[in-house]
Design a protein around this nucleic acid. Structure first.
Lengths: 351, 351
DNA sequence: CTTTAGCACTCAAGTCAATCGAGTGCTAAA
DNA sequence: TTTAGCACTCGATTGACTTGAGTGCTAAAG
């Protein structure tokens, strides 16, 4: 495989650029005029022919302009594009949107917000998956007497999530008794994961009915948190992408967008795809690899966020293969870092 | 305004029926053949002409079949359609979907679920707005010592919503002191709305710093709940509607679907629209009245759910004007009643 | 007075051929 | 190695023509 000349690289990246903007095959004459190149269309044609030969470009039909191939996009994203950081200005704008909503609504709220901002910035579909606690454990249990015969169980987990349960008791129990029970549970189970608690509990059976009742609820609530909240995926901007010719024209492609309204499919896809990525790095999937077959000329820009080995989620942008990588990649990276910061702050707060 | 003959009613409803199915203008001959009418096409033509005169039907151009007008749909929905209850079979299916998710995820979870079920049943866009507590008041406050210098404030509201806050204290405070403060607050403010608490608090200023701190947080949290969670709208099934010819063909209409990804617009629309509806009743808005101008040949089926005068939200279906009213209306009604039941149950639990 | 057969008329949608033009590859000269 | 020139390709556009579902009107039949 021969190495590309500088001029070839230039021309290739111009083609990609132009095609991203116009979505129409780009030809030699057009290229020379638009970018004021100082060689002739014929020269450009020769180079285009070579690039086509090497499979970086393709032609929809013999007498049309060129379109980047998957391979072309890959080279563009990997080498040709100058991935600068996001402009100061844009960073501020995003931060502003993030923090003007003063209410702290917890992790869920942040994710929703991130999805909304990312969608509006990228004009594409945004995906934000809930951080999956790799090791979620019990931080604190509190028991609160409500009416004498009803109590509230409040659970704080190391991931920063909380759960509450109402439980109706068979007999009157004093707040004192509740506090003592809570203390005992905290001493014995603090810092343990769901499974560890389960095992520990097997060891010694108390005949303390209250204790049993509480622990049953605690375990249930923890299982739920583990299983459910874990993989939830927030999505935004589906309508953004409807304007793109790729989707406007093909009924099939439009149907394929259904997938973004189907939690289970999204979850399994994201969890399969991005797990081995390190925090902060951005991964670009070009040509809908592994995704739905009808979405083949689409791309996905993904990044992981959170705290390594502890609590990590995925954030990303989905759009046509000719998406604005040079804007989307830094944006995704920046939003991932914002989310990471927010999450580690919220963990520190709970320390 | 003359009254329609039985035959005219029959023909009108057949036209509506057929147009809902085929989305193409329906003509006399076709009508007679498809429904095996025992009068001739010419007769039907005469009737169609009269119905057109009376503005129940219209023609896209002089030599085409008829299409129902807004007025036509209104008559159909209001009088001609036999609004039977949802079939036993369908009710069971919906209930099953509703309750197979065993986890009780709180009101939010139910709403999401309702939106998802409604979208899949109606093949249109579903809307579920969070119940707006008309009179939300404080049920219980609990203060929990976490680490000696951090406490957790747990707020239970009469609407069944909960809020927690972490607060870092300037000095060590015992759980005992916290419990006493909580008791005091509960005695003084229990059952009051945000505004009432605000007033009551003005009356006597304590020099109890802890008390002040807690109350500041309680009020904040309550304001947030009032303002924010209140109007949130869950949406599902946007991609359903993309297949409909109304949207597949018009770029404009597709753009207009953006509105379903914009919380503020949705919230204000729903709150303006459906407030004066009584619980259980179903309201049908034909011709996108008041909604976006680009969505004029669309309709909305809405119902209120919840507990009258206390905690009510809206549930509904949005689709092309030629939607399957006869299926969607009972479905919306049924789902509204399910949600109402769930909400009143959850309130009873908290009593 | 109502229904229906017959007929001329309308008009969107489909078919087909001609034309246009952006783009190509190749060759030969600079 | 670059470029001008030229014949060629082929999708897109245009416009004339045909087709057919549907109409309104009239006059005869019930």
């Amino acid at each position: 495989m021969s190495i590309l000349s500088e001029r070839q690289k230039l021309i290739l990246s111009l083609v990609v650029h132009d095609y991203i903007k116009t979505a129409t095959p780009v030809g030699s004459k057009n290229l020379v005029e638009k970018f004021r190149l100082d060689f002739s269309p014929a020269t450009v044609r020769n180079e285009l022919a070579k690039l086509t030969e090497m499979n970086f470009l393709s032609q929809p039909h013999t007498s049309a302009g060129r379109i980047p191939t998957e391979k072309g996009y890959r080279l563009f994203v990997g080498v040709l594009m100058n991935t600068q950081e996001l402009k100061e200005e844009n960073r501020h704008m995003i931060e502003h949107q993030f923090f003007q909503t003063q209410q702290d609504q917890g992790i869920d709220g942040w994710m929703k917000l991130a999805a909304s901002i990312l969608a509006s910035q990228s004009k594409a579909i945004s995906l934000v998956s809930a951080p999956l606690p790799i090791r979620n454990s019990l931080k604190h249990v509190a028991l609160i007497d409500l009416t004498g015969k009803q109590m509230l169980i409040v659970l704080v987990l190391t991931s920063g999530q909380m759960q509450q349960r109402f439980v109706t008791l068979t007999e009157q129990v004093s707040q004192n008794k509740l506090t003592m029970t809570a203390n005992e549970i905290n001493q014995r189970f603090k810092g343990m994961t769901t499974d560890q608690i389960h095992q520990e509990k097997q060891k010694s059976t108390t005949n303390n009915a209250l204790m049993e009742l509480v622990m049953k609820n605690v375990l249930n609530a923890m299982y739920e948190t583990d299983a459910m909240k874990a993989g939830e995926v927030f999505t935004d901007g589906i309508s953004n992408v409807l304007a793109e010719p790729e989707f406007a024209e093909s009924e099939e492609a439009r149907q394929a967008l259904r997938i973004f309204e189907e939690q289970p499919a999204l979850q399994s896809f994201l969890s399969k795809t991005a797990l081995d990525q390190k925090i902060g790095g951005v991964q670009v999937l070009i040509g809908g690899e592994g995704l739905l077959t009808n979405l083949q000329n689409c791309s996905l820009v993904l990044a992981r966020y959170g705290i390594p080995e502890t609590l990590t989620g995925t954030v990303g942008v989905f759009g046509p293969m000719r998406m604005a990588y040079s804007r989307n990649i830094p944006t995704v990276r920046f939003i991932a870092s914002l989310l990471s910061d927010l999450i580690s702050e919220s963990l520190v707060e709970l320390q």
